[in-house]
């Protein structure tokens, strides 16, 4: 399984890869699992929107992984 993209500054995630590895789960299916819209999943995947802590935990729960396997944070320091 791939790790979250560690090269980018800020929050990044590996949701797209994880969806693919979980029976090619669609964005809509993931959105229904975590109670947000498909547009929000698209925005999270493309790192244009940082989810709330609750949504982040829900996403990790869907993939049955700890939070740091789904999301990573890299500062510019």
């Amino acid at each position: 399984m791939s790790k979250p993209d560690d090269n980018k500054i800020g929050i990044s995630n590996s949701i797209r890869t994880l969806r693919f590895l979980n029976n090619e789960m669609t964005q809509k299916q993931l959105a229904e699992h975590i109670g947000v819209t498909r547009q929000t999943v698209m925005a999270i995947e493309s790192n244009k929107y940082s989810p709330t802590l609750e949504v982040a935990f829900k996403i990790a729960e869907v993939f049955n992984l700890p939070l740091d396997k789904v999301f990573s944070y890299r500062s510019d320091k």
């Binding site: 109670g35 947000v36 819209t37 929000t40 949504v55």
Partner: peptide
């Protein structure tokens, strides 16, 4: 049934 659902935080 999209409009009957409440808006998420981003919306």
């Amino acid at each position: 049934d999209e409009l009957s659902r409440p808006m998420d935080v981003r919306e």
